[in-house]
Each structure stands twice: as structure tokens, then as C-alpha cells.
Computed example of a mutant assay.
Amino acid sequence: MSRRDEKPSRALRGRAGRMQGGRGSGRASSGAVRLWGRHAVEAALKNPEREHRKLWATREGVATLDGELPAGFPVEWAQPLDLARLVAKDAPHQGLVLECLPLPDVFLEDVLSGEAAHPIVVLDQVTDPHNVGAILRSAAAFGAAAIVTQDRHAPPESGALAKAASGALETVPWVRVVNLARALESIEEAGYWRIGMAGEADLALSDAMPTGAVALVLGAEGEGLRHNVAQHCDALARLPITGIESLNVSNAAAIALYAVASRG
């Protein structure tokens, strides 16, 4: 039986007025995070893992939410221009800005002890919050088990990232690790076939695809996968694109996740 046909091991397992706080990317004071936009705020409000502090909102913004706010939820009513002072410049807050604490840590062993039929997405030094947010959104759409990043070379939770994720930040586990190579070793031990996406690879993704559990490994645009990370992949594969040199990493992740989900 080939390595690609092996079954995964399960051993591892208010009132309107001047708002407090300055403009920023979505990081508030004292370690809190500010989220904005209907999808991001609504998903965070529904997430029992979130510890909420305060909602600044227009009445029109609150009216767009699915369901009512809990009784006694701290809301400060505001005008759109007041909310604009709390978020990144020109951010589409849609009348909603939520301050909350970051999500609790998620550990790799907890993900590996789950359902191995769902792919894992590993990101090697992808630092743009819009890309990570978009990848989270695709991960949610195609049923990925988690995304895994190195803690020091990935963006923090932020309003911009959550807006790009369109609610998926609250539903897709995000594992932050110290050493990505060691994480890939643990992923292999759990029975996953690790495919590194590389434009220069000889194999097309369809030819590298296993029948069992898959971990897709993607690097930053331009730099691609670091050598040590690529060495910890079972295969390197490319997308069959023509006419351009490469795709945005979030687009590549979406296509690769679709390919995994549509295996026969």
C-alpha cells in the first residue's frame, strides 16, 4: 500500500458623540480587538468563546443583525462619522464596531485529534491580514479543519482581518505555533499528506493529491515556501495556470481547497 493510500493515524490527536480611542487597524488598548462590519460583528456576537466588552453602533447597524442583542449588552449609540474614528481609515464599518478580547488559544493536538477528512491549511510567513482573512473565509467554505501559522510571522487578530474573513475568524480554528517545521512533523505523524504549493514544482496538484488526509502548505507571495518548510512536505505541487506567473496566495488557497473538496 502506498503512502498516499494509507489511512490517517488517530494517535495524535449611548448617545452619539465623540468616541474614546483613536484610529487604528483594529487593535484597541489593553489587548482588546476591535471588529467592524456586519458579518464580522455578528459572528463574534454569536461566538460563545468571545468575551465582549462594548458595541458602538448606529441603530440602523443593529437592525441588520440576525437576532437581538442580549439584555443589558453594553451599547453606545453613535453616528457613522463617530464610528469612523474608531477603525482604520475608510474601513467599511456598516454602523457596527465591537470591542472584545482575542479568541482563546487553539492547540494543534486538538485539531489533529478531530476528523481527519477535513484538510488543514498551513501558512508559511503569510503576513498580510487581508490574505489571511480571505484564506479563513475559503477554509470555512470548503470545510477545512484549521489554519496553522507561525506565531511570530503572522498577523494578529484585527478588524481588517476579521472583515476579510467575513465571520470565518469565529468558526475556523486558528493554531499559532512557535516552530512550523515541528508542527508539520506532528501533522505527518497524525497521518496527513503534506502538499507544499510551489509554482516551480513539476507535479500538478491533481497528480500530488492523496486519497487520505491532506495538509496544504502555502508560502508568502514572492518568497514562497522557505527551504526548511518545503523539506517538511511530502510533495510539492503547482496549480495548472497559464498566462500569468502566479496567483495571490488567498486565491491559490481557495483553488487548492476546492481541489481537495472535489476529489472523487
Results as ranks from 00 to 15, higher is better:
Val87Ile: 15
Ala165Glu: 08
Glu170Pro: 04
Leu108Tyr: 01
Ser262Asp: 14
Gly26Thr: 13
Ala16His: 00
Val121Tyr: 06
Ala28Pro: 12
Val122Thr: 09
Val41Ala: 06
His52Pro: 05
Tyr192Phe: 15
Leu55Pro: 04
Glu6Asp: 15
Ala160Asp: 12
Val111Ile: 15
Asn47Met: 02
Gly17Arg: 03
Glu49Pro: 00
Glu49Tyr: 03
Gly61Ser: 10
Glu68Cys: 11
Glu221Leu: 09
Glu68Gln: 14
Ala213Arg: 07
Trp56Asp: 03
Leu112Gly: 01
Val177Glu: 09
His52Thr: 10
Gly199Asn: 05
Ala220Trp: 00
Leu112Arg: 08
Arg85Gly: 10
Asp82Trp: 07
Met209Lys: 07
Leu65Asn: 03
Gly219Pro: 14
Asp66Thr: 13
Val126Ala: 07
Ala256Cys: 15
Ser30His: 12
Asp207Trp: 10
Ala16Val: 07
Gly61Ile: 10
Met19Lys: 09
Ser29Val: 12
Ala145Ile: 08
Leu98Pro: 04
Ile187Lys: 08
Cys100Gln: 05
Leu216Lys: 04
Gln231Pro: 05
Ala201Arg: 07
Thr127Cys: 15
Pro92Ile: 00
Glu245Ser: 14
Arg53Asp: 08
Pro210Val: 15
Pro80Asn: 11
Asp105Gly: 04
Leu225Ala: 06
Gly224Pro: 10
Arg85Met: 12
Leu247His: 04
Leu184Ile: 09
Val172Gly: 00
His39Leu: 12
Val122Pro: 06
Ser138Ala: 10
Tyr192His: 10
Leu225Tyr: 12
Asp5Met: 15
Pro210Leu: 14
Tyr192Asn: 05
Glu109Trp: 04
Val122Trp: 06
Gln150Ser: 05
Lys46Leu: 13
Asn47Ile: 04
Ala160Tyr: 07
Val106Asn: 00
Gly67Tyr: 00
His93Ile: 02
Gly17Trp: 00
Ile241Cys: 05
Gly17Glu: 07
His93Glu: 02
Arg13Thr: 14
Gly196Ala: 06
Val111Ala: 01
Leu161Tyr: 00
Thr171Asp: 09
Gln20Leu: 05
Pro173Phe: 12
Leu101Ile: 00
Ser138Arg: 02
Ala78Arg: 11
Ala91Gln: 02
Arg27His: 14
Pro156Tyr: 13
Asn179Val: 04
Gly24Cys: 09
Ser113Leu: 03
Glu42Thr: 01
Leu257Ala: 01
Thr149Asp: 03
Pro129Arg: 13
His118Cys: 02
